[in-house]
Simulated scan of single mutants.
Amino acid sequence: MSDTSEKEQPRRRQARGERRIAQLLEAAARVFCTTGYTAASTNAIAREAGVSPGTLYQFFPNKEAIAIELGGRLVHEMRETYGEALAPVDPATSLEEAIGAAVDRFIAFNTEHPVFFALMHGPDMPGGITEAHDQLHTTLIARIEGLLSSLMPGASPADVTRTAHVCLGVYKAGLELVLAHEGAERTAYVQEIKDVLIRYLDPLVGDRLGRG
């Protein structure tokens, strides 16, 4: 066997392992969304993935390890999402456009990955994910504060922080309704979230943004 073939074998095994892990994580996401984290089991995840429990245990020792890996990947993707969604706003952008663009990006992420809400905001969040959730929440609030500070230059830091928490709270409350509906009803709930945030922020922002 050539040196090249010997080097290729570990890479092939690694690629197969990565594909299997992705397969297990996708199955776990479906199970967690359907049953919730507490009621989920490794046997159910293995069955959903079409593999034996023994195969699953080759990669993950238990369902918490699966949830932590899945949550970690989603948190990484979510950080990229909110980085784009909360980018500085052009002064010519209307408040409606600014809020609409941010909400649409967050909603797109959450509807594409409903397990993120199931793991991060469910009543039975696995312990290993709590720290990642808290870090994400803290960073997200800081990014919202940064955006609001540019829109509310005369506001005190305490006012900006309070406003950021209210905005995030409104979004999270509305998100649960959005994920519980489909089609036109989902679209209507998304618009309700935007309207609530716009009406809340409009008197605080004043004429800082255009109304184009």
Score class of each variant (00 low, 15 high):
residue 3 D to F: 15
residue 9 Q to K: 14
residue 15 A to F: 11
residue 21 I to L: 09
residue 23 Q to V: 06
residue 25 L to W: 07
residue 31 V to M: 06
residue 33 C to F: 09
residue 33 C to H: 05
residue 33 C to W: 09
residue 43 N to Y: 13
residue 45 I to H: 00
residue 46 A to H: 01
residue 48 E to D: 05
residue 56 L to I: 07
residue 57 Y to C: 02
residue 59 F to P: 00
residue 59 F to I: 06
residue 64 E to V: 01
residue 64 E to A: 01
residue 67 A to V: 04
residue 81 T to C: 02
residue 82 Y to W: 07
residue 84 E to N: 06
residue 91 P to I: 13
residue 93 T to H: 08
residue 99 I to T: 04
residue 102 A to W: 11
residue 102 A to V: 04
residue 104 D to F: 05
residue 104 D to K: 02
residue 106 F to Y: 15
residue 108 A to W: 07
residue 109 F to K: 04
residue 109 F to L: 05
residue 111 T to E: 15
residue 116 F to R: 04
residue 122 G to N: 04
residue 125 M to E: 14
residue 127 G to V: 06
residue 135 Q to C: 09
residue 137 H to F: 12
residue 138 T to F: 05
residue 142 A to E: 15
residue 142 A to Q: 10
residue 145 E to L: 04
residue 154 G to Q: 10
residue 160 V to P: 00
residue 161 T to W: 12
residue 164 A to V: 08
residue 165 H to R: 12
residue 166 V to E: 10
residue 174 G to Q: 13
residue 174 G to F: 10
residue 175 L to M: 12
residue 175 L to E: 11
residue 177 L to E: 09
residue 180 A to K: 07
residue 180 A to L: 11
residue 183 G to I: 07
residue 186 R to W: 07
residue 191 Q to V: 04
residue 194 K to W: 01
residue 203 P to M: 05
residue 204 L to C: 01
residue 205 V to A: 02
residue 208 R to H: 13
